[in-house]
Computed example of a mutant assay.
Amino acid sequence: MKLFEIRKEYTLKSLDINDVSTDPLRQFKSWFEEAVDAEALEVNAMCLSTLGKDGFPNGRIVLLKELDSGFVFFTNYESDKGKELDANPKASLTFFWPEIERQIRIQGEVSKVSEAESDEYFFSRPYGSQIGAWISAQSREISGRQELEERQKETENRFQKVPMERPGHWGGYRLQARRIEFWQGRPSRLHDRICYEIQDSGEWRISRLSP
């Protein structure tokens, strides 16, 4: 099969500007709950895009772990994404749920969550994931799998003798949205797109975009 022969017609739902919430976070929660009900695969997976020092964008999948005033995720602060966010604390998030033919794109400014928030989430993780946060020098070159396994044994032995603690290089970020676009697939590629943009007044401007 040739790539241009791969097609899917979107027919499940529609999206009207008169039906959405005035608050994009409330609208997000509504769509997220529908995605959960539809048993979307990895429903909280999102593509986090940051800007590298070379000017090229970098995207990778991370997991949404909290939604309060912003979108919260956790990672290694010394990873590529951590360094890029330190240099340029702006990023975008993209959710795609093919089960309900929906996409959400989010742009905003990113800041670290408090140490207490990072601690709370870290100690809620499985023990193996806590160990993993210690042994992975994320994004750095390693000699092979054996290096990781040796670090794992060393770290497990260490925390058999002392209480587990969160590594200082690991924690959370919160993206405060400035722009959120909701995309609903429609027939003939005439998709529905509703965009929220924050104004200087703090209010959200809602508009419909051409597909």
Score class of each variant (00 low, 15 high):
Tyr196Ala: 05
Asp86Gly: 02
Asn157Pro: 00
Arg26Asn: 15
Cys195Asn: 13
Phe73His: 01
Gly144Lys: 07
Ile17Trp: 04
Gln107Thr: 14
Leu175Gly: 02
Tyr121Glu: 10
Trp204His: 04
Ile142Leu: 13
Asp54Ser: 13
Tyr173Ile: 05
Pro211Trp: 01
Asn18Gln: 15
Arg60Met: 03
Arg208Gln: 15
Ile180Asp: 00
Gly185Ile: 04
Val110Lys: 12
Leu12Tyr: 12
Ile180Gly: 00
Glu84Leu: 02
Arg105Asp: 02
Gln138Asp: 10
Thr94Phe: 13
Ala38Asn: 07
Lys8Pro: 01
Glu117His: 08
Ile194Asp: 05
Ser139Asn: 08
Gly202Thr: 09
Glu101Arg: 06
Ala87Trp: 03
Lys112Arg: 15
Asp37Pro: 00
Glu120Ser: 15
Val110Asn: 08
Pro24Cys: 08
Leu48His: 11
Arg193Leu: 01
Arg140Asp: 11
Asn18Asp: 15
Met164Gly: 10
Asp23Glu: 14
Glu141Leu: 15
Leu64Glu: 12
Met1Arg: 14
Ser207Trp: 04
Trp97Tyr: 06
Ser111Gly: 05
Phe96Ser: 10
Trp134His: 10
Asn44Pro: 07
Arg208Val: 12
Phe96Gln: 03
Ala137Met: 09
Ser210Met: 12
Ala116Lys: 13
Gly168Pro: 06
Arg105Tyr: 09
Leu175Met: 11
Asp200Thr: 13
Asp16Glu: 14
Asn58Ile: 01
Ile106Arg: 05
Ile104Asn: 04
Leu64Trp: 12
Leu175Ala: 03
Val36Cys: 08
Gly55Gln: 08
Ser49Ile: 04
Glu34Gly: 10
Leu3Thr: 12
Arg151Trp: 07
Tyr121Gly: 10
Thr94Gln: 14
Gly132Asp: 06
Lys81Ser: 08
Gln184Lys: 07
Thr94Asn: 14
Phe4Val: 09
Met46Pro: 02
Arg105Ala: 10
Thr50Cys: 05
Glu154Trp: 06
Gln176Ser: 12
Pro98Cys: 11
Ser143Tyr: 04
Ser188Thr: 09
Arg178Asp: 15
Arg205His: 08
Gly52Asp: 02
Gly132Lys: 01
Ser201Gly: 02
Pro89Leu: 03
Arg179Asn: 14
Gly132Ile: 02
Lys8Phe: 13
Glu154His: 09
Glu101Cys: 03
Trp97Glu: 09
Asp200Phe: 03
Val162Asp: 00
Ile198Pro: 00
Met46Ser: 09
Arg105Ser: 11
Arg158Gln: 13
Ser79Leu: 10
Val113Asp: 06
Leu148Asp: 08
Glu66Val: 00
Glu197Arg: 15
Leu148Pro: 04
Leu175Thr: 01
Glu33Cys: 06
Gly52Arg: 14
Asp54Cys: 06
Leu67Ser: 06
Arg140Ile: 07
Phe159Ala: 02
Tyr77Arg: 03
Leu64Gln: 13
